[in-house]
Simulated assay, not measured.
Amino acid sequence: MAKNTIVQRISLDGGEAIKSQLQALGSAGERAFKQMAAVDRANFEKFSASLGKARTDLAAFVKNTALLGTGLAAAAGGAGAAVFSLAKSSAESADEAGKNAQKTGLQIDAYGRLEFAAKQANVSQDQFVSSMSKLNKSIAEAAAQTSKAGGTFDASGVTVTRFGAATEKAAEKTETAGTAFDRLGIKLKDANGKLRPTEAIIGDLAEAFSRLEDGPVKVALGMEIFGKSFADLIPFLNQGRDGIRDLGKEADKLGLTLTAADTALGDNLGDTLDELAGAIFGIKRKLGLLFAPIVLAGAEGFRDIIVQNKDAILQFGAEAARVTAGVLGAICCTF
């Protein structure tokens, strides 16, 4: 065992026990400590100082400009954060409602009334939007095909504007184009030849389906108009025109219906918050790149320290492992 002693560099409870273990490492441990003591600490200290300065500069920048949202973070437990959260969630809800209304071909206020009525019939929002989207497509297709027939019939198939063989061919086209709507007695266009509001058409469809007996005919007509999701929509339609209208009035009274201005505001706020998040990310990235050369230089210096003393560190580790194994072996033998 080497006679040289290792100066204890660790001060903590049980230090004497650690000192005796370090002494047991002998000459290999002594050499390792001497080599590590001879390491040029200047680079590491410079690296640490650079990191400290970078951290201080970054903190000051954030505090002064509030680019990272410190204004909101400071009020996280107060009214500021509550107002922000309320505005954000309301805007997201309004934006989503506006986009769903577009998918269904409904005005935003009509969407709110009908979606509430559907919810009261246990029809989920996804089911409602899917069904209304298919209805909107069915209405458009039926109206387009009727127009291709030369305007010979209105949506109910009764107004003749042509004569002779051409009229008969147009009638055949219209008969297949709007069969489901025709059989239910639903007019898609008003007296001026314009498409009626989708909300009004839905009311007529609800009244017609509520009077139809459950069975294959009802299902076939419903699937032709609403698609495969018709079965989910039956409880909603079975409320009839008046039932849906009454629930729509209840939605208005409860403040559940929105305006076009509401959805536009929600969309604008959502877009602005997305842009803000992008701006914050961009600034953080630019800041990181400004400090990157300092961090790089320090990291390179620290890397060189590790590489230069690799053998000593590994040798010290091997001796420490040997001593630890011996200590553990002695403890095991005691038991």
Rank of each mutant, 00 (worst) to 15 (best):
E141Y: 06
F153G: 06
F128T: 04
T161S: 15
S147R: 12
D154P: 01
K137F: 10
A171N: 04
D126M: 04
E172F: 05
S131R: 05
E175P: 00
K169P: 11
K119Q: 10
V123M: 09
F163A: 15
K148D: 13
A121N: 08
A155M: 11
F128L: 03
A165L: 07
T159E: 12
S156R: 06
K173T: 10
G151T: 12
S156A: 14
D154T: 13
A149S: 06
T159N: 12
Q125F: 13
K134M: 08
K148G: 15
Q120S: 08
A144M: 15
S156N: 10
N122S: 08
A170W: 06
T152Q: 14
E141G: 09
G164M: 03
K173Q: 09
T159P: 12
F116W: 09
V158A: 05
K148E: 14
L135H: 05
A140E: 12
F163G: 14
G157S: 00
S147N: 15
T159S: 15
G178N: 04
A166K: 00
A171Y: 05
A165F: 06
A118K: 05
Q120N: 07
T161W: 14
T161D: 15
A118M: 01
G164H: 02
S156F: 13
L114E: 04
A149K: 04
T161E: 13
Q145A: 07
N136D: 06
E172I: 08
K148P: 14
N136K: 02
A155G: 04
S133Y: 04
T146S: 07
E175N: 08
S133T: 15
I139Y: 02
L114A: 07
